[in-house]
Write a protein that binds this DNA or RNA. Structure first.
Length: 601
RNA sequence: GCCCACGUAGCUCAGUAGGUAGAGCACUUCCUUGGUAAGGAAGAGGUUCAUCGGUUCGAUCCCGAUCGUGGGCUCCA
C-alpha cells in the first residue's frame, strides 16, 4: 500500500512523534465528549494512529466529525505535552481513582516487569500513562495533514476472550500533500483490487447460493489456473516430484493420528457420519501422502520421496475473515511432502527454497515478496512437545536462511504445531500481509504415523518430512498476480493473448484465417468481428489488457500481414503473420514477461 | 465469531423530510463498412429498492432479525 518516500531518520522520528501525539489528542477529545469512556492504548501506526476505547456504546462513523472538530479545537489551545513520572503505587492509585481499569492493568504489568516508576503525559486536563515521546506542544501538529479515518472493534490486548474495545483510526502525515497523496494511492489500490478486476475481467464468481468463501472460476479464470498448474506440475516433475492424487475426504481417525483433530479442529468442517464412521473434509493433504508412503516398505535408496499434488482442501473460517480469492473456505494448494533421511533435510530444504525462488522469478513476484521465518513462541501448548527436535529444526532453518542469504523476518509464534516454517509473504493492494507460499520442517508427524525406511545397515529408521507449497494456493496466487499486474498479466497467463480486429467485414475471412493460424500453435486468440468501429474494438481490447491486437484491413490482407499493437508499449508495427506467430509463440513458451513480438520499446 | 459501515437495473451511482423509482455504461434492434481508446437513433430492462418481520392509512426510506459485502480485531494458505 502506501510506500513512504525515503525519509531521513530524523524526519521519520518526528512523524512518529506527531502521530503519537495525535492519538493523545484523540483520546483527550473523546474524554471531553464522553467522559465515561475508558482508555485502552493509542499508538502511532504506518499511516497515522489509533486509540482504543472501552465503552458500552461503540463509536460509529458519524461520531468522527464531532471528535475531529474537538481535536482541532484542543490543538489550537496550544497545550504543552507535559511529561511527569511517579511511583508505581501512586500511578495505580491515580488511575484507579479515575476508573481507568485498563491502564491500571498496564501499570501492573510494568510493575511485574520490574518497573518502579512510570511516566505520564498531560495535555490540558487530560493525562495518559505513556512512555512518549511527543511533540512539545499541540501547536506543532499539522492540523491540515490529519483526518479521522474509520472505526473498528479490537479486542483488548488482541485477545478474543477479552472485551472488545472501540477503536478509532486516524490518518496523519507531515504535510497536507502527503495526506492527499496517500488517499489518492488508496483509491488507486482499490482499482487494482483483485475482487474488482476479477469481476471486470470475468475471472471468478462468488455466489451466495453456492456459499461464501467458495469461489468459482469462469472459463477465463480457469485458463489462468490451468496455465499455472501446467507450469508447476511440469516443473515439479522435472525436479523429481511424483505427482499423485488423493481424496478430499478422509476418516476423522486419520486426523486424530496426525494431531490435526487435536490442534486444528477449529479450522476443520464438522465430521460427516457415514454408516457409523466419521469422515472429514481434509484441511491438509499430509496424512494422505503419509499413507501413500507407508503403503509399502521403503529403502533408503529411494529417498527422498517427493509426493506432490494440486490438492483441493477445505478449511472452516470465521465469516469475518473471508476475502475474495485471498481468504476462502475451499481452495487448491500446490502441495508436496518430501520424505528424506534426517541427515538430508538441509539439501532437501535448499532444493525447496530454490524451487520457490524460481517460481517467484517466473511469476515476476520476486521483488514484491519477502521471507518469514516462523518459529515457536512461549505458548508451548500450541505445539508438539519435543524440545530437542524443535531446537534442531529451528537451527537447520536458520542455517539454510543464512547459507542461501535469505533475509528472513524472524517471527515467533507463527510456527505450525508440528514444526517451524519458512513462509513467503506478500502484501495485498490493501496493504494486508498474507502468506503466499509456506514450507515446513515436520518434526512430529512421521513418528505419529510410524513412518520408516530401511537404512544401509538394515535397521528401520524414521524419515523426516518437509511440507512445502511451490506456487501456493492457486486462488490466492491468482489474486496476487492480478493485483500485482493490475490485470495486465504476462502473456502466458492471459486468458486471451491475441485479439484479431478486422476493419470491415471484407476482412472477416482473412481475420479468421489469422486466428486459426495462431490457434494451431496453441495460442489463445479471439476474433472481434462485431459490426463496430475499429476505435471501439481497440478501446475495449485495451481495457481488457489484451497483450497483442492484430488489426487487419485491406492492406494486411493483400500482403498476408498483421498490424500489431503491443499492450505494454502501445507501439505498432506491421509484419507477416508467420513472423508474428513465431515471435508470440516464443514468448508464450518461454513465459516471457516482456512483450517484444511487435513494437518493442 | 466480535465491532463499525454498506446492500436501489449486469456495472457505477442518483433519489424520496415515509405517498407504490431514475441516469450513464453494458444489453437488444435499426442505420453507419469504419485504419488504432466510446459513430448515431430507438428499445428493453427493477417479480419495486438483499430477505423476512414490525411500526404506519401507506415503507425502498423508520425499527428488529436474517443473509451477503467491505474495513478492522482474532485466526490463517
Amino acid at each position: 500500500m502506501y510506500q513512504h518516500k525515503t525519509m531521513d531518520p530524523q524526519e521519520a522520528a518526528r512523524l512518529h512523534e506527531m502521530r503519537h501525539t495525535f492519538s493523545h489528542l484523540l483520546a483527550a477529545a473523546v474524554q471531553e465528549l464522553r467522559p465515561e469512556v475508558k482508555l485502552g492504548i493509542g499508538p502511532a501506526i504506518d499511516d497515522g494512529f489509533y486509540y482504543d476505547f472501552l465503552t458500552d456504546q461503540p463509536f460509529s462513523l458519524s461520531d468522527l466529525k464531532d471528535i475531529e472538530r474537538r481535536m482541532r479545537k484542543l490543538a489550537q489551545a496550544k497545550h504543552d505535552l507535559a511529561p511527569s513520572s511517579m511511583g508505581v503505587a501512586e500511578a495505580k492509585a491515580l488511575l484507579a481513582q479515575r476508573g481507568e481499569v485498563l491502564k491500571v492493568e498496564l501499570v501492573e504489568d510494568l510493575a511485574a516487569q520490574g518497573e518502579t516508576e512510570v511516566s505520564f503525559y498531560g495535555l490540558g486536563g487530560f493525562l495518559d500513562l505513556c512512555k512518549g515521546p511527543h511533540v512539545a506542544n499541540t501547536k506543532d501538529l499539522p492540523l491540515k495533514a490529519f483526518k479521522l479515518d474509520r472505526v473498528a472493534g479490537a479486542y483488548w490486548r488482541g485477545d478474543e476472550k477479552r472485551p472488545m474495545l472501540s477503536r478509532i483510526y486516524g490518518l496523519a502525515f507531515l504535510t497536507p500533500e502527503d495526506l492527499a497523496a496517500y488517499i489518492e494511492q488508496r483509491e488507486e489500490a482499490e482499482r487494482r483490487d483483485h475482487r474488482r478486476l476479477g469481476r471486470d475481467m470475468d475471472l471468478f464468481v462468488i455466489s451466495p447460493d453456492v456459499g461464501k468463501g467458495l469461489p468459482m472460476f469462469t472459463e477465463k479464470g480457469t485458463t489462468i489456473r490451468r496455465a499455472l498448474e501446467r507450469f508447476i506440475v511440469d516443473e515439479e516433475i522435472k525436479r523429481g516430484y511424483l505427482h499423485v492424487q488423493t481424496p478430499i475426504l478422509g476418516r476423522k481417525h486419520l486426523y486424530e493420528i496426525s494431531g490435526h483433530w487435536e490442534h486444528y479442529q477449529d479450522s476443520m468442517y464438522p465430521p460427516i457420519n457415514v454408516d457409523g464412521e466419521d469422515y472429514v473434509l481434509r484441511p491438509m493433504t499430509c496424512p494422505h501422502h503419509f499413507m501413500l508412503y507407508a503403503a509399502r516398505p521403503r529403502s533408503y535408496r529411494e529417498l527422498p520421496v517427493r509426493y506432490a499434488e494440486i490438492s483441493p482442501m477445505y478449511r472452516k473460517e470465521k465469516s469475518g475473515e473471508l476475502s475474495g480469492l485471498i481468504r476462502v473456505m475451499g481452495f487448491h494448494l500446490a502441495d508436496a511432502h518430501i520424505f528424506c533421511k534426517p541427515e538430508d533435510v538441509k539439501p532437501v530444504f535448499r532444493e525447496v527454497v530454490d524451487l520457490i525462488g524460481y517460481v517467484m522469478e517466473t511469476l515476476g513476484l520476486a521483488e514484491r515478496c519477502w521471507y518469514r521465518l516462523s518459529l515457536r513462541d512461549d505458548h508451548k501448548e500450541k505445539y508438539i512437545d519435543a524440545p530437542e527436535s524443535w531446537a534442531m529444526a529451528e537451527r537447520d532453518m536458520r542455517d539454510i536462511c543464512e547459507e542461501m542469504k535469505l533475509e528472513a523476518q524472524v517471527e515467533p509464534g507463527h510456527a505450525a504445531f508440528y514444526g517451524p516454517k519458512l513462509d513467503v509473504q506478500m502484501a495485498t493492494v490493501g496493504g494486508r500481509e498474507e502468506t503466499l507460499f509456506t514450507n515446513q520442517i515436520d518434526i512430529a508427524l512421521a513418528q505419529r504415523f510410524h513412518l520408516e525406511y530401511i537404512a544401509e545397515d538394515g535397521s528401520r529408521r524414521m524419515p523426516w518430512v518437509v511440507h512445502r507449497s511451490s506456487i501456493g494456493c492457486l486462488e490466492r496466487t491468482i489474486a496476487f498476480l492480478v493485483e500485482h499486474y493490475a490485470g495486465a498479466l504476462p502473456l502466458w497467463l492471459m486468458p486471451v493473448q491475441v485479439k484479431v480486429l478486422p476493419i470491415t467485414d471484407e476482412q472477416t475471412a482473412y481475420a479468421a484465417q489469422v486466428k486459426d493460424q495462431l490457434e494451431r500453435l496453441g495460442l489463445r486468440v479471439e476474433l472481434d468481428d462485431r459490426k463496430e468501429t475499429l476505435n471501439r474494438k481497440v478501446r475495449e481490447a485495451k481495457m481488457q489488457k489484451i497483450p497483442y491486437l492484430c488489426v487487419v484491413g485491406q492492406r494486411e490482407q493483400q500482403e498476408g500481414s498483421v498490424s500489431v499493437t503491443n499492450r505494454d508499449t502501445d507501439r505498432k508495427s506491421t509484419l507477416p503473420v508467420a513472423q508474428f506467430a513465431d515471435a508470440v509463440l516464443k514468448e508464450h513458451v518461454t513465459r516471457s514477461r516482456q512483450l517484444r513480438a511487435a513494437g518493442a520499446a
